[in-house]
């Protein structure tokens, strides 16, 4: 192994171009990454900035806080609130359920095929979102859905009579969880694989109980990946619209649906209010990320 890395250095040394050659080559180097940066600036960063700035301008292009202040009307606040609730609930349920499944398949002593089958299925289900997912849940928990009918005929439990509605907060949350759990599984399994078996054995020989080992080692080690994934799940749910729109039409007024209606028909009769709504969405997902980065740099000094 040593001789390979030595020959590596030798090769690098020999091919390092002389000074003039390097300055000649500089433009070509940037040429390779230029399409990426041009694309990112034109179609990702500028459009976003355009909306951000528009949120602080009035029709005449002057700076103002009016649009942001206008977000404080009850219907918009309600929309943000229900969005935050659905996103938070679905990301937390998805995260804990996904973590439990990941631990079960990695550390639970289940047969190997269960692990690979679960990972494959998670890859599929985490991408099975949008309109078709809404159809699947309507067929399951809608008024005529299979689960609804079976619960009613076999157990005499009419979930709709008990206040459940697929077009409600819990209906939407339960549907979102269908892609949130597998996403958590896909992301967190490598982190759990990274927990070395020897750590548990070392802790055991040092007299630690299972609970102590989890509290002092496992949870602190997994925590950063876990929290990062929760943030990702939150953003994932917060921006999602297709599932909710196909499921509930516009009966459940979450923020993306409100924005969608605004873009289609300018229902709020003020384009700049639309910008402000978009700004609010990015502000919330951005805030979640800033919190995550702040937390991680503060508490995880042991991470390289």
């Amino acid at each position: 192994m040593t001789d390979i890395s030595m020959s590596d250095h030798a090769v690098t040394g020999k091919t390092a171009p002389p000074a003039e050659a390097r300055s000649m080559r500089l433009p070509t180097q940037w040429l390779g990454v230029a399409p990426f940066f041009i694309f990112a600036i034109m179609f990702l960063i500028l459009p976003t900035l355009y909306l951000m700035l528009g949120a602080f301008q009035n029709e005449a292009g002057e700076f103002t806080f009016e649009n942001i202040a206008a977000l404080a009307q009850p219907s918009i606040i309600a929309a943000y609130w229900i969005s935050i609730k659905v996103s938070l609930a679905s990301s937390l349920i998805g995260a804990f359920a996904g973590l439990a499944i990941a631990i079960a398949i990695v550390r639970g002593g289940l047969p190997e095929w269960i692990r690979s089958a679960t990972l494959t299925f998670s890859g599929v289900a985490s991408n099975f979102a949008g309109v078709p997912l809404a159809f699947a849940f309507l067929a399951t928990l809608g008024r005529l859905g299979l689960a609804t009918v079976i619960l009613n005929t076999l157990f005499g439990l009419n979930i709709y009579a008990h206040g459940f509605n697929i077009l409600s907060f819990w209906g939407l949350t339960l549907t979102y969880v269908y892609f949130q759990i597998p996403l958590m599984v896909v992301i967190i399994v490598p982190a759990i694989d990274g927990l070395k078996k020897e750590w548990g054995e070392a802790a055991a020989t040092l007299g630690a109980t299972m609970a102590q080992y989890w509290r002092m080692v496992v949870i602190p080690v997994i925590w950063p990946s876990f929290l990062g994934t929760v943030i990702l799940l939150f953003a994932n749910a917060f921006g999602a619209i297709a599932t909710a729109y196909a499921l509930t039409g516009s009966s459940l007024n979450i923020v993306p649906i409100l924005l969608y209606a605004q873009i289609r028909g300018d229902v709020l009769h003020n384009a700049h209010l639309g910008y402000a709504i978009a700004f609010g969405m990015i502000f919330i997902t951005g805030l979640a990320n800033v919190f995550y980065i702040w937390f991680r740099t503060r508490s995880e000094r042991w991470l390289k």
Binding site: K196, E198, A202, M216, V217, W302
Partner: peptide, 10 residues
Amino acid sequence: FQAYALFPNL
């Protein structure tokens, strides 16, 4: 242990 097995977070 062969692979040290120190707890990385401590």
